[in-house]
Amino acid sequence: SAVVMEEGSPGEVPVLVEPPGLEDVEAALGMDRRTDAYSRSSSVSSQEEKSLHAEELVGRGIPIERVVSSEGGRPSVDLSFQPSQPLSKSSSSPELQTLQDILGDPGDKADVGRLSPEVKARSQSGTLDGESAAWSASGEDSRGQPEGPLPSSSPRSPSGLRPRGYTISDSAPSRRGKRVERDALKSRATASNAEKVPGINPSFVFLQLYHSPFFGDESNKPILLPNESQSFERSVQLLDQIPSYDTHKIAVLYVGEGQSNSELAILSNEHGSYRYTEFLTGLGRLIELKDCQPDKVYLGGLDVCGEDGQFTYCWHDDIMQAVFHIATLMPTKDVDKHRCDKKRHLGNDFVSIVYNDSGEDFKLGTIKGQFNFVHVIVTPLDYECNLVSLQCRKDMEGLVDTSVAKIVSDRNLPFVARQMALHANMASQVHHSRSNPTDIYPSKWIARLRHIKRLRQRICEEAAYSNPSLPLVHPPSHSKAPAQTPAEPTPGYEVGQRKRLISSVEDFTEFV
C-alpha cells in the first residue's frame, strides 16, 4: 500500500504489510482489554486508547508507543517513533504512522508483537499521559499493580500540603484535648505513684524565703500560729474566702420596643432579638451553673441549684474572672410580681450592659438600685453597626469618660462592650471603697496581704499580753509611738528610695 506524505515531511518511507502472525497476537491482546472507555466527539468514531511506554525494544532499544483501536470491530496495532508526526486519522481507513528506516525489517515488528510479559508489566506500571491515566485505574490494570491496600497518609489540604495544625504542634487546635488526655493517663497511674504529687513543697518555699535578706529584721520574721485558738483558725479560714484573682460581676439587660421607661417590662423579658443573642455568645463562655464549683469559678452570688437559672456566661484571663448576670437567662416566676429574684442580683451590680433595642433613649435610673454606678448603652444600628456610649452617676464623672461614643461592628461589639464594662467596674470598686478611707481597694491579692498582716499583728499583741517580758514586734495601731529626735535631713532622693524599699516589703498600697 502507498502512503501520501504530508508537506514538509521527509522522503517516502516504505511501509510494510503486517504479517498475519502479528495480527493474531494483537487480536488476542485486544480481546482481554476493556472496550468501555469514554466516548469521543461525534466527528471521530468511538475508540479506546491506552498509551504504553516501553523502555527498550528487543534487539533495537527504541521507545515506541502502542495504540489499540477497535475500529470496525477489528483491533489494530500502531507502532510509531515518538519524534515523528502521525498522519491524519479517518473512520474509513486504518491508522497509518511513519516509521524510521531502522524499523524497515519486518522481523523487528514480529519481535515487538512478542514482547515478554516482563516488558508489558513494566510498561503498564509506568506513568501514563492524559486520558490513558484514568483508564489505567480500571480493573483491567489491577493485575499489573501490587496486591494489598496502599499505606494511609496524613490529611492533605486542597493545595496538596499538610495542614498547619499537623506541622506545628504548639498551634494545633487540639492541644488542650491532648492535655486532658495526659491528665487522664496520670489519673490511671499505679498505686505506688499515687503518693507522688507534682509541684513545689510549701515548706521548701518557706525555707528559701526565711533565709532571704527580706527577713533580716525582727519585724519581718515569720511567727508560728497558735493551734489552740479558734479565733485565729477562723481568720485563716476567712483568708480562703478572698480569692487571689480579681472578680467582676456585670449585669446584662435587654430593652425591647416600648420598654425604655418600664423597669418591670425590662426585667420580665425572657429572650431578645437575634443580634442580641449573637452578642451574648461573644461576651464569654456559656457555663452550666450546676456543674460549677464556687471555689474555682466566680459566680457573683448565683445559685447553683437552679434558683437563678441553669446557664450563664463568664469570662476570665490570667488575673481576673468576670460573670454576667443576664436577665433573660434568669427564670421569670409568676409568684414574683416585682421580679425581686432578678433584681437582687442586677440591682447590686456596679455596672450594667444595656442592649437598647427600643429605638428610644434609655435613662440612668430606670433600673432603681443603690449600686448602679455605670451603664454601657448598646444601640443597634443599620448595616451591622452599633452605637456604644457610657452613662454614669455624677459622683463617678471624674473616673469615667462619658463624652466619647463609639461606632462598632457586630463582630467586635462583644469585645468592646466587655472591656468598657470591666474598666468601669474597676473604677466603681475604687469609688465605692472611698467610703472607708482606711481600706482603699487596690486588688484582691493586696486584700489578702492586708488580712495576713492584721492576723500577724493580733498574734503579736496576744503574745505580748500573755508574756509581758516579750517586746511587741508591731505596736498596736491605737498606741502612739514614742517621740523621736529629728534626724539629720537627708537628700530627698535617698528618703524616697528608703521609703520605697520599706513599702515594698510591708505593703503595696502607695504604689497603687
Rank of each mutant, 00 (worst) to 15 (best):
residue 371 F to W: 12
residue 496 G to L: 13
residue 340 C to E: 15
residue 331 P to C: 06
residue 375 H to Y: 15
residue 293 Q to K: 12
residue 486 P to Y: 10
residue 330 M to P: 04
residue 337 K to H: 13
residue 438 T to M: 06
residue 313 Y to R: 09
residue 223 I to M: 08
residue 317 D to Q: 03
residue 261 N to F: 04
residue 335 V to I: 11
residue 237 Q to V: 06
residue 257 E to K: 06
residue 217 D to E: 13
residue 333 K to E: 10
residue 238 L to F: 12
residue 311 F to D: 05
residue 360 E to W: 02
residue 296 K to I: 06
residue 264 L to D: 14
residue 364 L to I: 14
residue 290 K to T: 13
residue 496 G to D: 13
residue 239 L to M: 06
residue 294 P to Y: 12
residue 337 K to T: 13
residue 264 L to A: 13
residue 339 R to N: 11
residue 272 G to R: 03
residue 505 V to Y: 12
residue 368 K to Q: 15
residue 274 Y to M: 10
residue 505 V to A: 14
residue 329 L to F: 15
residue 327 A to Y: 08
residue 376 V to A: 01
residue 338 H to A: 14
residue 253 L to M: 04
residue 425 N to K: 01
residue 287 I to N: 08
residue 302 L to M: 11
residue 398 G to D: 13
residue 228 E to D: 10
residue 385 C to W: 15
residue 238 L to E: 15
residue 368 K to A: 14
residue 259 Q to W: 01
residue 283 L to I: 04
residue 420 M to Q: 04
residue 428 S to N: 02
residue 358 S to N: 01
residue 335 V to D: 15
residue 243 P to T: 05
residue 493 Y to T: 13
residue 276 Y to M: 00
residue 337 K to C: 12
residue 306 G to W: 05
residue 443 S to Q: 09
residue 425 N to C: 09
residue 470 L to S: 15
residue 303 D to Q: 10
residue 376 V to E: 00
residue 471 P to F: 07
residue 252 V to A: 01
residue 254 Y to H: 00
residue 326 I to C: 06
residue 421 A to W: 01
residue 303 D to G: 10
residue 338 H to T: 14
residue 340 C to I: 14
residue 294 P to A: 13
residue 406 K to D: 03
residue 471 P to Y: 07
residue 344 R to A: 10
residue 464 A to T: 12
residue 363 K to S: 14
residue 245 Y to G: 05
residue 348 N to Q: 15
residue 286 L to Y: 05
residue 505 V to L: 14
residue 347 G to Y: 15
residue 439 D to C: 08
residue 440 I to S: 11
residue 508 F to V: 14
residue 363 K to T: 11
residue 252 V to P: 00
residue 243 P to M: 04
residue 417 A to L: 02
residue 396 M to F: 14
residue 473 V to E: 15
residue 308 D to W: 07
residue 427 A to V: 07
residue 251 A to D: 03
residue 305 C to V: 08
residue 310 Q to G: 11
residue 378 V to I: 14
residue 253 L to K: 01
residue 273 S to Y: 01
residue 412 N to F: 03
residue 262 S to T: 04
residue 465 Y to T: 10
residue 484 Q to G: 12
residue 232 F to Y: 11
residue 390 L to H: 02
residue 493 Y to K: 15
residue 372 N to D: 09
residue 299 L to Y: 15
residue 389 S to K: 10
residue 263 E to R: 01
residue 233 E to H: 10
residue 239 L to A: 09
residue 331 P to I: 03
residue 240 D to Q: 05
residue 407 I to R: 03
residue 408 V to M: 01
residue 494 E to K: 07
residue 271 H to Y: 15
residue 400 V to L: 11
residue 383 Y to T: 06
residue 476 P to K: 14
residue 451 H to E: 15
residue 309 G to R: 15
residue 289 L to N: 15
residue 353 I to M: 02
residue 332 T to E: 07
